[in-house]
Nucleic acid binder design. Structure first.
Length: 884
RNA sequence: GGGCGGAUAGCUCAGAUGGUAGAGCGCAGCCCUUACAAGGCUGAGGUCACAGGUUCGAGCCCUGUUCCGCCUACCA
């Protein structure tokens, strides 16, 4: 088994091998019949248009860490993968491709177009799956789902029909957001608001009786042709005498009334507002209250229509310009002010959306939202971090009906059939023979498709086989956790909760872990146009997948955005290399035959220390992961591996490994090193699956992958020896510090003598003397008493055991720079005195002694004693140096 | 307009239930010591945004202020 590792870890050589092996061996395939406790997650399905970006990488790395961790803990893990058909986005992509061929979707026809999209899906759908596999995602790939699969489509139809029959889905003419580029309705959520600078135009509308005019303020003069009234506040005295009068709308010369509505803000503009129900949400409501008609002036491409008279055919922005010119000429513009306004844009194509009245399908959300609110209030479902619950409640409590129909071709066709012979609509899960109402065979399916998020909302149970009653549903629903970022809490999380409760009568997941959004090192959102994107695939290529994964984990502090700079990844690449070399070092000392387990009776202080530290690290990793604190877990591992295992333990046992201390010591240290390394690999495996499995395959006698290993058991710990070792380490630091401060060559042989007060400290140092010699390069460690305190020489103060202190003297004839040493000691003294006076001040307060808990007071007293001792020692040291 | 979050070392950030301010990176000095220069050792660096308050004690709790983000909203 003795093989040598290359000097540097080369990720590209091992990653592909392991990614393939894990899947081939079926490690990630969940078995509903396993007796183990279940742990399940559904992946947030990436779009089929997509290629892996950093958001995916983060999202899936964290899920994978959790999945692998739970698997090692002994859970029956199902992590179900899938992809999303992403209606509008995908349709846009395919349309663009067609455009390159000189084709439009209209030319192709619906059927042919949809065929093309499927073709495209086949080609590109695998891309992101392959990339997820490359990331190491331990999904159950045998259960891969797609939102347009037959099973999932069935679930969609089933839900639609049930909701429709319960009156929770309805169809009607309402004002909705319309994207004139995508040519479809959008839900409120799909509109993004942007602050832009524009103008506020003050328009004069003459009174019909010729007695004057009224001035309204608007940011959208082009919609005036669709005005059906001007509204004022009923309590606004300025306009009381105009009550009931009629205005003549300029240009088209249409007569419109002056109405009164309490919603009008008297303070804004002139206190009079034009009412355009066909192109403004607010006006739509006002018009309904007053039974006013609606006049649309634009068509579905947001061009002016026949109601726009002379402006017919113009684009809306073009029309605005021309209309303002005309009104100016006619003297109907009183003034124009600069104005900041927020405009809604389409979240898929950034086109300014146009509010329009049209016939659409809606989900009545009120009855669905109430149980969804309750579930979170009662703790059936938990947000992590908890603060996101507020955001959730805020939206849920003010939820509005959800427009679910889209005028596109790619998606789940609405399962509703219109009858040509009667007004009845037949809603059914399968194509009906004829009209339910009149029996006519002349029926036609609704041309619209459903909002993509409608099918996503069913994801946690549709993927498990619903509406069938499957084993999977019984075992794995509700899922254990959902990982996502905050930007889709409303889009997705909230809707899954509503649908899960409605159709499964239970929450879709117990925990929702909300992770950060990734930004660049300057905190800017990454975007292709800014050119600041970091491509995870390039990073994996350059630094290794494990390095990328570890970086993402370490940066995933709760409740904060992640600012990522490439140097961070490089840093964790170095960590991977460190681990690799630790393994390389370990292997160099392994015999050809399997190592025997070391006997606890033979453990050295260093052995006991590292086992104790390992136990602490193991505990931190486990509890941090339980609490979704990936950063804490990763940092703990980093610190343990690098700064405890490599920096101290390996260095401390080198003499043992060389056989300088006899065969037993050699065997024991080798054994402990190997054990700790092997168990550390298990702790690290969820974070860095590739390198850990690669190393494991070298050092373990078993062929199996770490995926099949259990999370390591905590070893025996030795607090007393561990504390002794810390004292020894501190003494070593003292000597090293003196060496560096006085510029003493490494080769120069030094001695050191220590002065301790407590017997326990002395014993610890005695027992650890060989470590001190080996690691600080001193020839001898001697002990002196107070009377023997040197008159001259330099020293440092180390921590003893139980609050004791140790003076570490290093005779350095010929090396001392008196000035430098005086400066150093004075600085140190100053610091100690500053702290001491703070502590003393505290202790001098009667109130503190009376009111603070006794153990705190005792701690302060101990600290005061320790600081005083330190101060005394420093003062004496200063004297000695001055005497030099 | 409402809401949420942030301001801690040069940079990026940790700092449960108030009790000695930490890490990574960067920086400086010294070291190619046969696991690793993608490395080792040592070190410098902080009025915890500001002003009050509660408390024996505040980075943490309360009030206010100033800057940043983000979410949300029917001020035309």
């Amino acid at each position: 088994m003795k093989r040598t590792l290359s000097k540097v870890y080369e990720p590209s050589k091992v990653e592909e091998k392991w990614a393939g092996l894990w899947i081939e061996r079926g490690y990630f395939t969940a078995d509903p019949h396993s007796g183990k406790p279940p742990f399940s997650m559904v992946i947030p399905p990436p779009n089929i248009t997509g290629s892996l970006h950093l958001g995916h990488a983060l999202n899936n790395t964290l899920q994978d860490i959790m999945a692998r961790f739970r698997r090692m803990e002994g859970y029956n893990v199902l992590w179900l993968p899938g992809i999303d058909h992403a209606g509008i986005a995908t349709q846009n992509v395919v349309e663009k491709k067609l455009l390159a061929e000189g084709l439009s979707r209209e030319e192709l026809g619906r059927e042919e177009f949809v065929k093309r999209v499927w073709q495209w899906k086949e080609e590109s759908g695998d891309t992101i799956i392959g990339q997820l596999k490359r990331l190491g995602a331990s999904c159950d790939w045998t259960r891969l789902r797609f939102t347009m699969d037959e099973g999932l489509s069935m679930a969609v139809r089933e839900v639609f029909v049930r909701l429709y029959r319960e009156g929770l889905i309805y169809r009607g003419d309402y004002i909705i957001n319309w994207c004139p580029r995508c040519m479809t309705a959008l839900s409120d959520l799909e509109v993004e608001h942007e602050e832009k600078s524009g103008s506020l135009y003050y328009l004069k509308y003459p009174l019909k009786d010729g007695t004057g005019s009224i001035t309204v303020a608007t940011t959208r003069p082009e919609t005036m042709l669709g005005d059906v009234a001007v509204a004022v506040n009923p309590e606004d005295e300025r306009y009381s005498k105009l009550r009931g009068k009629t205005l003549v709308l300029p240009i088209v010369e249409r007569e419109i009334p002056i109405i009164e509505d309490p919603a009008v803000d008297r303070e804004f503009g002139t206190g009079a507002v034009k009412i355009t129900p066909a192109h403004d949400f607010n006006d739509f409501e006002v018009a309904r209250r007053h039974s006013l008609p609606s006049v649309a002036v634009m068509d579905e491409r947001a061009g002016m229509n026949e109601n726009a008279g002379p402006y017919r055919g113009l684009d809306r922005f073009e029309a605005r310009k021309k209309m303002v010119e005309e009104l100016k000429e006619k003297g109907l513009i009183e003034r124009v002010e600069d104005y900041r306004l927020s405009v809604g844009t389409c979240y898929r194509c950034r086109t300014v959306v146009e509010p329009m009245v049209s016939k659409q399908w809606f989900v009545r959300t009120g009855p669905l939202s109430r149980p969804a609110i309750k579930a979170v209030e009662e703790g059936a479902l938990r947000f992590v971090p908890k603060s996101w619950e507020k955001t959730y409640f805020e939206w849920m409590r003010n939820i509005r009906d959800w427009c679910i129909s889209r005028q596109i071709w790619w998606g789940h066709r609405i399962p509703a059939w219109h009858c040509k012979d009667c007004p009845h609509i037949t809603v059914a899960t399968t194509t009906p023979e004829g009209c339910e109402g009149c029996g006519s065979k002349d029926i036609e399916q609704d041309p619209d498709v459903l909002d993509t998020w409608f099918s996503s909302a069913l994801w946690p149970f549709s993927t498990l086989g619903w509406p069938e009653d499957t084993e999977e549903l019984r075992v794995f629903y509700p899922t254990s956790a959902l990982f996502t970022s905050f930007d889709i809490i409303f889009f997705w999380v909230a809707r899954m909760i509503m649908m899960g409760l409605k159709f499964m009568e239970d929450v879709p997941f117990r925990d929702v872990y909300i992770h950060a959004l990734i930004r660049d090192a300057q905190g800017q959102k990454m975007s292709k146009s800014k050119g600041n994107v970091i491509d995870p695939l390039v990073m994996m290529e350059r630094y290794g997948t494990d390095a990328l994964r570890f970086t993402l984990a370490v940066l995933a502090a709760q409740g904060r955005d992640i600012k990522l700079a490439e140097e961070r990844i490089e840093g964790y690449r170095n960590f991977a290399n460190k681990l690799w070399n630790l393994a390389r070092f370990t292997m160099m000392h392994l015999e050809d035959k399997p190592a025997e387990s070391p006997r606890p009776d033979d453990y050295s202080v260093a052995d006991k220390w590292i086992l104790t530290r390992f136990k602490a690290c193991r505990g931190q990793v486990a509890s941090a992961l339980d609490a979704y604190q990936f950063d804490v877990a990763a940092k703990s591992l980093y610190g343990f591996v690098w700064h405890e295992l490599c920096d101290w333990y390996v260095e401390a046992i080198k003499p043992d490994l060389k056989g300088e201390k006899g065969e037993t010591r050699k065997k024991t240290s080798t054994g402990v090193l190997l054990t700790v390394l092997a168990d550390t690999l298990k702790l690290l495996h969820p974070f860095m699956p590739f390198i850990t499995d690669e190393i494991h395959s070298y050092i373990s006698e078993r062929e199996e992958s770490l995926v099949k290993e259990g999370f390591p058991q905590p070893p025996e710990s030795y607090p007393e020896e561990a504390s002794n070792m810390e004292t020894v380490m501190d003494v070593i630091r003292c000597v090293r510090n003196i060496r560096v401060e006085f510029n003493i060559p490494n080769r120069a042989e030094l001695e050191c003598v220590v002065l301790t007060r407590k017997e326990a400290t002395k014993r610890a140092i005695e027992e650890g003397a060989h470590y001190i010699k080996a690691l600080s390069g001193v020839k001898e460690v001697g002990f002196i008493t107070e009377e023997e305190r040197p008159r001259k020489g330099v020293f440092n103060v180390a921590r003893g055991v139980e609050g004791d202190t140790v003076e570490v003297f290093v005779p350095i004839r010929g090396y001392v720079d008196v000035e430098a040493e005086l400066g150093r000691l004075e600085r140190e003294l100053e610091k100690v005195e500053r702290e001491l006076s703070a502590v003393k001040k505290r202790l001098s307060k009667e109130n503190f002694l009376k009111k603070a808990p006794p153990e705190v007071v005792e701690k302060e007293r101990g600290r005061s004693r320790e600081l005083e001792e330190r101060r005394e020692r420093l003062l004496k040291g200063l004297e000695r140096v001055r005497a030099l």
